[in-house]
Amino acid sequence: MTLDQLVALTLGATLVACALAVLAVRAYTAGRAQRRELEARLSASPSDPVAGARRFAGLDRRLRATRWGRRLEHRLAATGLDVTVGEFTVYVLALVTGLWVVAQSLLAAFFGPLAALLGLWGAATFLSWQRAKRIERFIGQLPELARLLANGTQAGLALRTAIPLAAEEMDAPAGEELGKVSDALALGHSLDDALGELAERLPSRELVVLVTTLVLSNRAGGQVVGSLRNLTDTLEQRKETRREVKTQLSQVMMTAYAVPLIGLTVLFLMDRAGSGVLDRMTSTFAGQAAVVIAFGLYAVGFLVIRRMSRIDV
């Protein structure tokens, strides 16, 4: 073989390798795009409108590209609210602005920033409350969930098959969360990873026990039916205990919310008693410091009462 033939053969092999590499990259890119499209379609709720029809879609895309936006998206997903990151951000900004203007006009200019901070704290508290409320509802459905999974496995179904069937039978939030687990399994995720993501979205002791039971039974190939039957009875007892504790602590919870309301009521009474009293009080550094300290003490009292009334069952 001459040198020219060797060069031609090398060039031909190089061109063929480059062509195959381009085809491989195109196939990989197309596969990745199809997977992202499938994940987005499966993660969307059937009742949601088209993504392009949502309000503030451009702002939502920009925010979700940031670390803070992804964290907020995760928190919103845990609450079950039908709101995007962009919509929630705009609503919170509108609330903060409104509270600033109202507090500045009704009380004094000094109370505008304090009201804005109170609005931000209220938005974060609202998300935590919605998440806790969703977790409580999910915990209340856990006995029925364990019973459905036990019936499915007793009928000879695998856990991967019993979970989608249970998702169709149960109401929200358990039905929605099991639907997400079923979608993750359909995308090729392992049962351990899918159930682990569920436990991260809705953290609770009861759910951790259920997930651990399912994962260990699936790994070891043990008797799932007997474990789920025993777990169902335990979850029923814990459900009744949590209900009794919540009833006993309802008055304490009302006291925790009444403490800061007393402080706000006193401010309005002072402003109505004498026109311009709050303006004169907050015009000096001593008055501003007294107001900040008073608000801080009310916040500390609220947190202390909430902490004392928090009993883990």
Results as ranks from 00 to 15, higher is better:
95 L>S: 12
183 D>G: 10
224 V>H: 00
209 V>A: 12
174 A>M: 15
80 G>H: 07
127 L>Y: 06
217 S>R: 02
180 K>A: 15
98 G>Q: 01
102 V>Q: 00
154 Q>W: 01
218 N>M: 05
117 L>C: 09
209 V>G: 01
127 L>M: 11
124 A>M: 03
87 E>A: 09
98 G>E: 01
89 T>S: 15
174 A>S: 14
139 I>S: 04
213 T>R: 02
180 K>L: 15
116 A>Q: 02
117 L>T: 10
109 A>I: 07
175 G>W: 14
214 L>V: 07
164 P>F: 02
94 A>S: 14
149 L>D: 03
175 G>S: 11
109 A>C: 00
103 A>C: 06
185 L>V: 15
118 L>K: 10
146 A>M: 05
190 S>D: 09
128 S>Q: 13
185 L>A: 04
215 V>A: 06
190 S>Q: 00
176 E>D: 15
167 A>P: 09
144 E>M: 13
218 N>T: 15
106 L>P: 00
123 A>I: 05
93 L>N: 08
139 I>T: 11
103 A>D: 08
189 H>Q: 14
109 A>N: 01
175 G>Y: 13
224 V>W: 00
199 A>Q: 14
143 P>H: 02
88 F>S: 04
139 I>H: 01
203 P>H: 03
194 A>N: 12
120 L>R: 01
97 T>Y: 06
159 L>P: 08
191 L>F: 11
93 L>F: 14
134 R>Q: 11
219 R>A: 10
158 A>E: 13
90 V>L: 12
198 L>C: 10
216 L>I: 09
176 E>Y: 05
113 P>R: 12
181 V>T: 12
103 A>Q: 10
212 T>P: 01
145 L>I: 05
126 F>R: 12
196 G>D: 09
191 L>S: 02
87 E>P: 06
138 F>V: 07
155 A>K: 02
162 A>K: 03
199 A>F: 03
143 P>D: 02
169 E>R: 15
171 D>C: 01
91 Y>G: 02
82 D>I: 00
126 F>M: 14
159 L>C: 06
214 L>I: 07
182 S>I: 09
185 L>D: 02
216 L>K: 13
93 L>R: 04
155 A>N: 05
210 L>V: 09
118 L>M: 10
194 A>V: 03
181 V>S: 04
110 F>T: 03
184 A>Q: 14
173 P>R: 08
95 L>C: 08
210 L>E: 04
179 G>T: 09
171 D>M: 05
83 V>F: 01
133 K>C: 04
96 V>N: 01
201 R>Q: 15
216 L>S: 09
186 A>V: 14
90 V>I: 14
157 L>I: 03
200 E>T: 14
199 A>S: 15
136 E>N: 10
194 A>T: 07
202 L>V: 08
211 V>W: 13
88 F>C: 01
179 G>L: 08
